[in-house]
Design a binder for these strands. Structure first.
Lengths: 195, 195
DNA sequence: GAACGATACGGAACCACGTTCCGTTTACCA
DNA sequence: TGGTAAACGGAACGTGGTTCCGTATCGTTC
C-alpha cells in the first residue's frame, strides 16, 4: 500500500526536493488540463500550467501514457478493486458484471479523450493500454467466469475483447449528446446472456 | 446516376484537361496510400505518389474527408443500396439488419484507420462524418423500423446511435488480431432482440 | 557555512505534418 | 499565335512532440 519512495526508503535514494515538488505540480496541472482540454492537451500547456519547462515533463513522465496513468491510477485501482466486491455483494454474477462495467463506463465517459487514447495504436499510448489491460482484464475475467459458471452468459467471450469493445463504445461519449454510449454498452452486455 | 461533370455537361464549364488528369491521379494515389498506410497517411506522401504538389491536393480536395469520401464513395453507395435489397430478400427483417450491418463492418475493418476517422471530432473529418450519416442512417432506420414492426427487436434504438456504436466497435479491428470486432457487433445486434 | 559533485531544470532547437500563398506554367479559345 | 483564366508546385508558416545541453539548484561533506 505504501507508495514507492514516498516515505523514507533507504534502498532507493531519495529524490531531490525540487523534483518531488515538480512532480506533484505536474500531476495537479495535468489533472486540471485533462478536465478542461482532454487527455490530448498539448504538452506545452501542461508545462505552463505547472510552471515548469517541457523538459521537466519528459524527465518525470517519458510518455504521455505515463502521465495519464499517474493521474488516474487511483481511480483505476478503485475500479479494479470494486470487481471482487461487487461479485460478493450482488445477487447474481451477471448483475455484478453489469455493475462493474457500468463503473468502467462511468470512468471512461467522464475523461475526455481517454477512451480514444486507450484504443490508439500510437506508441505514446502503449503504456496506457498495457496498464489498463494488466489491471482490469483479470478482474473482468473473474466476473465473466463467475457468470459463465452460473450459466448466465455464453461462455465464448474473452475479457480482453469485451473490455476493448466497451472502451471503444465510450469513444466520443463526452462530446456528442446524441450518442448514448451507456445504452450501447448495456445492449452489448445484454447480448452476452444465454437465451 | 451520372456523375456531375464527368461527361460533356454544358452548364458547368468543363474542367481543364490537366485538372481532370490530376484528380484521377490523386484518387488512384490516395486509394493506394490508404491501403498501405491507412487513411491517416501524410498528405505529402499522397502528393508524391500522384506526382503533384501538395497545393494540388488541397485545390481538388479541401479537406482529408473530401478525399476519403471520393475514394470510397462507390463502396458506401453500394452498402447503402444493399439495405432495401436485403430487406426484400431476407427471411426476417432482423436477419436483413444483421446482414447489412455485416456489410458495413466488412467495409470498415478493411479500411485501416477509417473507423477511427469516422468518430474523430477533428474538423477535417466533419464532411466524412456527415456523408456517412446522410447516406447510411436512413437505410439503417428503414431496417430498424421493419424489425421493430415485426416485433423482433426492442423499439428504443435509434439508427444514428447504432451506426456510431458499430463504427466504434470497428476501431482497431485491422491492427489487433486478438480483437474480434465482428463478434462484438454480433453481440450488440443480438442484444437488440426482444426477449 | 563554503565548496563540490550529482541531480534536475529550462527552453531553444529540431522534426514531422497540416495548411496557405503566390510566382510560374499550362491549357484553351479567339 | 497570342492572351487570359485556370491550375500548378513547392516554399513558407503554424502547431505540436521530442531532444539536448548549458545552467541552476540541492544535498552532502569538510
Amino acid at each position: 500500500m505504501a507508495d514507492i519512495d514516498s516515505g523514507s526508503e533507504q534502498l532507493v535514494p531519495r529524490k531531490r526536493a525540487d523534483a518531488r515538488r515538480n512532480e506533484k505540480a505536474l500531476l495537479d496541472a495535468a489533472a486540471a488540463a485533462f478536465v478542461t482540454s482532454g487527455v490530448d492537451v498539448p504538452v506545452r500547456n501542461i508545462a505552463v500550467l505547472a510552471g515548469v519547462g517541457v523538459g521537466t515533463i519528459y524527465r518525470h513522465f517519458p510518455t504521455r501514457a505515463d502521465l495519464i496513468v499517474a493521474v488516474y491510477r487511483h481511480q483505476i485501482e478503485a475500479c479494479a478493486e470494486a470487481g471482487p466486491a461487487l461479485l460478493a455483494d450482488s445477487d447474481t454474477p451477471h448483475a455484478a458484471l453489469a455493475q462493474w462495467i457500468d463503473l468502467f463506463v462511468d470512468f471512461l465517459v467522464t475523461k475526455h479523450g481517454l477512451a480514444a487514447a486507450l484504443q490508439s495504436d500510437d506508441a505514446a499510448f502503449q503504456a496506457l493500454h498495457a496498464y489498463f489491460l494488466d489491471r482490469l482484464v483479470p478482474v473482468c475475467d473473474q466476473l465473466l467466469d463467475a457468470a459463465v459458471a452460473a450459466d448466465e452468459i455464453r461462455p465464448d467471450m474473452d475479457a480482453y475483447g469485451l473490455l476493448r469493445g466497451v472502451g471503444n463504445l465510450c469513444i466520443g461519449a463526452g462530446t456528442d449528446p446524441l450518442y448514448d454510449a451507456r445504452r450501447l454498452v448495456d445492449l452489448l452486455v445484454a447480448g452476452l446472456r444465454v437465451r
